[in-house]
């Protein structure tokens, strides 16, 4: 490796850290999809129902076959909290945890970004954004949904 490449690396800002998820063959697609900036949910191949968190068997029809389908990335805040204690090295003091209900009907836990706690309400329309962290971890995060045509 050349000297210039070393100096480029030393100048790159360090990515923030997060606790990394563990994965199994049932769940890895979700995290792999996030790396490609795709929000994936698990769909039963037999009855087409969606489920999250991922698991091997459809509880309705007991089929084992499933596909990873891309969600719209749009949803609404179903519930939210601001954990204040204890403080962790991985989080800013004012971080927001939300339970988001996607348009497709499944829910997932995430962080709300680009919004102050005072502006968060249950029912707030939100959309996905993908943030990169140390170790190659990419997490789906959600921010208030922009009106059609609004500049990003």
């Amino acid at each position: 490796m050349s000297g210039s490449e070393w100096s480029d690396m030393s100048e790159a800002p360090a990515l923030p850290e997060r606790l990394a998820p563990s994965m199994t063959p049932d769940t890895q697609f979700f995290w792999d999809g996030a790396k490609e900036h795709r929000l994936l949910t698990q769909q039963c191949s037999a009855c087409n129902r969606l489920r999250h968190p991922p698991r091997p068997m459809c509880p309705v029809c007991n089929a084992l076959d499933w596909e990873a389908v891309e969600a719209s990335g749009r949803g609404t805040v179903f519930s939210f909290v601001m954990p204040r204690h204890p403080q962790y090295p991985w989080f800013e003091p004012n971080y927001i945890v939300a339970l988001v209900e996607l348009e497709e009907g499944v829910r997932l836990v995430t962080n709300l970004v680009d919004v102050t706690p005072a502006d968060v309400t249950i029912g707030l329309p939100v959309e996905v954004r993908f943030d990169e962290f140390a170790g190659g971890l990419v997490l789906p995060m959600f921010r208030p949904r922009r009106a059609y045509g609004e500049s990003t």
Partner: peptide, 10 residues
């Protein structure tokens, strides 16, 4: 794993 990366830890 669905909660810890987002700080829902207690």
């Amino acid at each position: 794993s669905w909660y810890a990366p987002y700080g829902l830890l207690t």
